[in-house]
Each structure stands twice: as structure tokens, then as C-alpha cells.
């Protein structure tokens, strides 16, 4: 968990405009909450990225 206001350089790096914003392995990102199934799919999607 990263507090976006305290660390603006990270918020800029990951284009955080809305929260919560989730970034997985710097490969997949999404804004807002997801149920666990689709959330896990995002994690697996991130692992498929080269």
C-alpha cells in the first residue's frame, strides 16, 4: 500500500489519477476495486507479460 500524496514521484511514475490504483509487476494496472476472481486474473495476466 502506497500513500499517493506522500510519494508524488511514484504517483507520477504510475499515472495515478484516481484511487485505489493497482499496479502489478509494473505490467498490468487498473483503477478501482475488483472482486477476487477478476483481481487474480489480473495478477496472472501480469505474469504472462514478457
Amino acid at each position: 500500500m502506497i500513500e499517493a500524496i506522500e510519494f508524488p514521484e511514484l504517483a507520477r511514475k504510475y499515472n495515478v489519477y484516481g484511487v485505489p490504483k493497482v499496479v502489478i509487476n509494473d505490467a498490468v494496472e487498473f483503477e478501482g476495486a475488483l472482486p477476487e476472481g477478476p483481481y487474480l486474473d489480473k495478477v496472472l495476466e501480469a505474469l504472462r507479460q514478457p
Partner: peptide
């Protein structure tokens, strides 16, 4: 606290996963 189905699915992950969650207070 994940469901059994999710835990089974997650068990196949064999590499580190880094999840960053940006929030505001």
C-alpha cells in the same frame, strides 16, 4: 481469506508478484 477456487488458481504462480496499491488517506 480467498475462496478455495482462488487459492488453487493462485497456487500455480511460481514467480514473485509485486502488487502496488495506491491510496489516499
Amino acid at each position: 481469506r480467498l475462496s478455495e477456487a482462488s487459492q488453487t488458481k493462485a497456487a500455480q504462480i511460481d514467480r514473485p508478484v509485486h502488487i502496488q496499491i495506491f491510496v489516499t488517506p
